[in-house]
Design a protein around this nucleic acid. Structure first.
Lengths: 211, 211
DNA sequence: TCAGGAAACAATCAAGCGTTCTTTTTTATT
DNA sequence: AATAAAAAAGAACGCTTGATTGTTTCCTGA
């Protein structure tokens, strides 16, 4: 046999992509063999090369597409929100929801960066930097307005993102807490962490009074 | 040639362990070949089997020893500290310092858990759970005393540990900020996050008044 | 001093890897 | 109905991998 009945290029390409995400998530990129991937899709390993140039480019496609999607959706979600506190909450909520819904993609993008060769890695890191800047800029703006008290916006950015991203280390759908509840809890931790023990500072009170 | 001059079993074993940590940190467990490891130590690949049963047990040894060390040192550090706030700060400081000093070990223990087979993984996860409980118990005690305002101690535990552990994703020795400064910044975020916007609650005030 | 154990080499194995190439079958176009 | 293009099979490739074995050399303690 050769071409199987009902076969379709676009459908197969999507199946390969999905199976790739699942297998890399479960076993890691290095540990996933192309024969394993092919079997998952119902193909011979050689046939995969109609859909990507090599194993590396499959990983890159998956990671880059995910990062681009994450960045685009975040920018769309924050568009039009100017108030730093509102932006912070929106970012936190978006990040959490996205990570709960696409755990496998997120996990791969975070874990397998080192498996990318230099050029590809640089591209992905660039996208990640742009994403982080969405938060960092918000933190700086809030600090300047006196709404946040943050000694080191860069450090706070890394800290917050690490905390939020950590949710996909343990979250499982159907658990005791709903996604909404988790968003509330995490966002509360974030907001309290950046507003400090006294809540709004004097500068923020002034800023408020003017508004 | 066979046995090289000045060779010593204990020294070689330690060299293998160290090289293993370095290579797994850099390339990942699956991507590290035993020939690569042997070359790093100055051995033939076959000689490695005098020091471990197989590749898997090398990884397990590294991870388990790290987790046991982390847990023991943390327990020692917190021993004698009863006040929840003091314990929280001590835990945070310990965790950060440990992670800044042994980034490679930490990274491996977090990333390569999935490369362990089921029994080994279960053992490591058990140790991790015990470590997490150090923090969770502290959070619960503090919440009960009214010093912390925490809706979900379990979630807060995961969130805090993720945030703190995240430091080894970007920290590099010799950077702009010293370890002490970073400990201050991160611990501040943690403390503010668990005390809430109003600082101490009414219950905490009562608790304080009694002391 | 000289045996016995420790340490390492050297060669080898089967299995699996990513990849390429050719062939066959199905689908779409005219 | 004829033909071209698309989709996949299947065989083969050179290599590397983790693992094993037998042998040689060195070290050390009685």
């Amino acid at each position: 046999m050769a071409r199987t009945i009902g076969s379709n290029g676009a459908r197969t390409a999507e199946a390969i992509r999905q199976a790739g995400v699942t297998l890399i998530y479960r076993h890691g990129y290095e540990a996933m063999s192309l024969r394993q991937l092919a079997a998952e899709v119902g193909l011979q390993s050689g046939s995969l090369y109609k859909y990507f140039d090599n194993k590396q480019s499959l990983l890159f496609d998956i990671v880059r597409e995910h990062m681009a999607d994450l960045l685009a959706k975040a920018e769309a979600d924050l568009a039009g929100i100017d108030d730093p506190m509102a932006r912070l909450k929106a970012f936190s909520a978006f990040h959490l929801r996205y990570h709960m819904q696409r755990m496998a993609h997120v996990f791969i993008a975070n874990m397998e960066i080192r498996s990318l060769d230099d050029d590809h890695r640089a591209m992905v890191v660039g996208l990640r930097r742009r994403y982080e800047n969405l938060l960092e800029d918000t933190l700086r703006a809030g600090a300047q307005a006196g709404v946040f008290r943050i000694a080191e916006p860069k450090v706070a950015t890394y800290a917050i993102i690490s905390m939020l991203t950590g949710i996909c280390m343990w979250y499982r759908p159907g658990g005791r807490l709903s996604q909404d509840q988790l968003v509330d809890i995490y966002t509360g931790l974030v907001v309290d962490g950046v507003t400090g023990p006294q809540g709004l500072t004097a500068a923020a009170e002034r800023h408020r009074a003017l508004a």
